[in-house]
Design a protein around this nucleic acid. Structure first.
Lengths: 233, 233
DNA sequence: TAGTGGTCTAGACCACCGG
DNA sequence: CGGTGGTCTAGACCACTAT
């Protein structure tokens, strides 16, 4: 006779997952304590803990000390996005990457940019407008603001040789990153730069980064028509 | 004299994180084995493992058995998105939620929908077009296909009382979910339903779900102008 | 303050995969 | 095959928070 195989945390996770989906626990219901589940399933408590951590990460349950584990009452679709640096993205699609520096201006940040960074005091910044190319054709138009307090070295970087995108990724690590997605209609100037029609619907990715509370950069990346962003499968 | 405080896995993570950012390990470089780091930092190997798991989840390093831990050579911005059910989203913004069933059609899936599900055989489906409202005004227009093989019960649901969105979330759990984001120009019909102008730039969220290999639903959610999707902070 | 999840430890064995 | 990460265990203590 063979004894039962040892349970893995994924087995525990799936069992609890199925129990919730089967309706044995409804939204808001409290699950048994980890320790009790461990006894019931004949495994160590840390194995249950590992399973619960995963269920919590994926948004199915919520855990609180003393409060126990509860099924999330408001279900969400939770997904992970990977946004590569633009050069890498172009090359992975089989294109030849290039970029053009359009304009480079040192100036104080306008109010809208300060608001994005959650700042109230004036901040000296470098504004960089650049175009990323795939096989010589426009791919992404970026309008970027970089804090000269947090990243003064950017003054001495030749941004026509290396895109601000890449320099920052390699030299200015961040702690916090906010993303924002939406659609805009191409204004005449944008349309011309992206070689498309005025009024075309364009997908926009805004990214803002900080190191601790210090602002690093905020960028509005305006993509060409047809661009799609996919989740990791 | 007090002895040094015990290290937490976050301390270990931050230390390694900083070492990478400071350039002590460059893209593609191999880090020491977990066991060595544990000795060096005077903690258990499992603590290092926990720290590394986090760094791996966040995309900074890649780990392989026998191959060791390496700094990811192509940096990515990794972010987590929470997409709530529409009713909840509207209510959270302080709006009054409503929805209208526009059309409901049982038919075989067209080729484009089959392709989305990665199917080659014909599949009977229910197509549901509906409008989500906030304070009586259009909020999201959804064009949804539901597999009648996987979710036959949907035939008997009154979709004017409960949106397909909510019924599915509560009754048809999924295993796999693909998301896709892009922008479109409003065609005349869409513009009328969303009470906006033809040609307006609209942000679109496409979501496709499966249970194991079986298709459940695919939905194209067309948002009203100005809609933005944000990451969790 | 007591109950629950969160973490650390030390040791063991397993699973994967590069050489 | 051997080296490395992945996981399990049993036990201990800590940290948060509901009651």
């Amino acid at each position: 006779m063979t004894h039962a195989n040892r349970l893995s945390w994924k087995d525990v996770r799936d069992e609890i997952h199925d129990a919730i989906l089967a309706g044995r626990y409804g939204p808001g219901d409290r699950l048994p304590r980890d320790a009790d589940i461990a006894v019931e399933m004949n495994c160590a408590r840390s194995t249950v803990q590992r399973a619960m951590q995963d269920l919590s990460d994926s948004g199915l349950v919520e855990r609180r000390r003393k409060g126990g584990t509860r099924v999330r009452s408001e279900p969400v679709t939770r997904a992970t996005l990977d946004i590569p640096i633009t050069r890498r993205e172009v090359e992975q699609k089989g294109g030849r990457y290039g970029h053009q520096l359009i304009r480079r201006t040192a100036t104080d940040a306008p109010r809208s940019v300060l608001a994005t960074f959650e700042l109230t005091e004036p901040e000296p910044m470098l504004r960089v407008e650049a175009l990323h190319l795939s096989d010589g054709r426009p791919y992404i138009l970026e309008d970027r603001w970089i804090s000269l307090r947090t990243a003064p070295e950017i003054r001495d970087v030749d941004l026509s040789a290396q895109s601000a995108n890449e320099w920052l990724v390699l030299n200015k690590p961040y702690n916090r990153c906010d993303l924002r997605f939406y659609a805009i209609s191409a204004d005449p100037q944008t349309a011309e730069l992206l070689q498309t029609d005025t009024g075309a619907a364009l997908f926009v990715i805004e990214r803002t980064t900080w190191i601790d509370a210090a602002p690093i950069t905020t960028v509005k990346a305006i993509t060409t028509p047809g661009y799609q962003l996919l989740t990791q499968s």
